[in-house]
């Protein structure tokens, strides 16, 4: 498999300013050392609870903010650079000159806020094209119409304002805008969580087919595990600014390793009555990313924490080929789950 992006020890600390002089008193450790490879043509799902840094990861890749430290290497095709480009240190204009700006795109969570309410659909979709290349009016309009068709809208929708559309249609417009510059990689930040269930499936299917036809690589950020299971090939589980487990989708859903992954799996409300996983109800809340716990970040809520977990931070290590987890007891968790929550639990997954 060919890498398209490689994140190396990526950190992002947001300063907490306080006092009259707005001095930095502390930092929110939104990302605290992320290592992740993304392969060409895959759909990588990123799951985790609110505030664990999913969006921050996505925004670092498309450089909507400057990470505190670490690197994001982009192995682009059709850009003006042979070498992998480190996105984190490349200036904005250099990104544009190298032709990278249009290659990395993002679709935001809420289509109501991600489309300018005072622009016509035509201009919303034409804007990214215009900022990449010069094009005549006719040609531009044809391109916009082609894009609209691709996302299931028609030319009748050209001259309308975003508020004249339903949520699902707005998200389609946002997708059309993201694919307008012929990108290679798109961050999808919870693209369906603001939508209705019946519309969610339309968008998911649209994204799936677009990925096929346009050879796209996706990073699909969500907190909804069933959606991830449906759409992605590989899943990364985040907790408090760290990756805790990365595996192929089937592996993660049948042989998870990290206790947090187990807890997430047991917490999803499953719309099936026969299929019931037992509950592993985690006590307490996610700790604040301002002062993350020492040692393993999950130890405050982990049912299997041992002495070592309080002191030593577990590293993200391979459990088997293509399956990494960050837990000191990664080889024993399955047995521990079976012991504490019943063997049924394990068999229910398989």
């Amino acid at each position: 498999m060919e890498k398209i992006l490689s994140l190396k020890n990526l950190k992002k600390y947001y300063p907490i300013l306080s006092g009259v002089f707005r001095r930095e008193v502390n930092t929110v450790k939104a990302l605290d050392g992320i290592d992740l490879d993304i392969y060409r043509g895959e759909c990588l799902g990123v799951v985790g609870e609110s505030g664990c840094g999913k969006t921050t990861t996505g925004k670092a890749i498309i450089r909507l903010h400057n990470p505190t430290s670490g690197h994001v290497y982009y192995f682009g095709k059709g850009i003006k650079s042979e070498e992998p480009v480190d996105i984190t240190i490349t200036k904005n204009f250099a990104l544009k000159r190298l032709g990278i700006r249009g290659k990395l795109q993002m679709v935001f969570q809420d289509p109501t806020t991600s489309l300018n309410p005072r622009m016509l659909v035509k201009h919303i979709i034409a804007e990214p094209i215009k900022s990449q290349e010069r094009m005549g009016g006719r040609e531009l309009e044809d391109r916009v119409i082609a894009l609209l068709k691709l996302v299931g809208l028609t030319r009748d929708h050209l001259l309308r304002y975003p508020h004249e559309f339903s949520g699902g249609q707005r998200q389609r417009i946002a997708v059309a805008r993201a694919i307008a510059t012929d990108p290679e990689f798109i961050v999808l930040d919870e693209p369906t969580s603001a939508l209705d269930v019946s519309v969610q499936s339309q968008i998911l299917n649209l994204l799936k087919s677009l990925q096929q036809t346009l050879n796209l690589t996706f990073m699909f950020v969500t907190h909804h595990l069933l959606v991830v299971k449906y759409i992605s090939n590989r899943v990364a589980v985040m907790y408090l600014g760290k990756m805790v487990e990365i595996a192929e989708t089937e592996v993660l859903f049948s042989r998870p390793v990290h206790p947090y992954t187990y807890a997430l799996l047991s917490a999803i409300p499953i719309p099936e009555v026969e299929h019931k996983l037992g509950r592993i109800v985690l006590s307490g809340d996610v700790p604040s990313p301002v002062n993350p716990p020492e040692g393993c970040r999950f130890h405050t809520r982990c049912p299997f924490a041992i002495e070592r977990c309080l002191q030593e931070e577990p590293l993200l290590e391979a459990v088997e080929a293509g399956h990494q987890a960050a837990c000191h007891r990664k080889h024993h968790i399955e047995a521990l789950i079976a012991e504490n929550f019943g063997q049924n639990w394990i068999s229910a997954l398989r």
Partner: peptide, 11 residues
């Protein structure tokens, strides 16, 4: 988001 979106499009 729409301003951020414009930014990543290189406007």
């Amino acid at each position: 988001d729409f301003v951020q979106a414009a930014k990543i499009m290189g406007v």
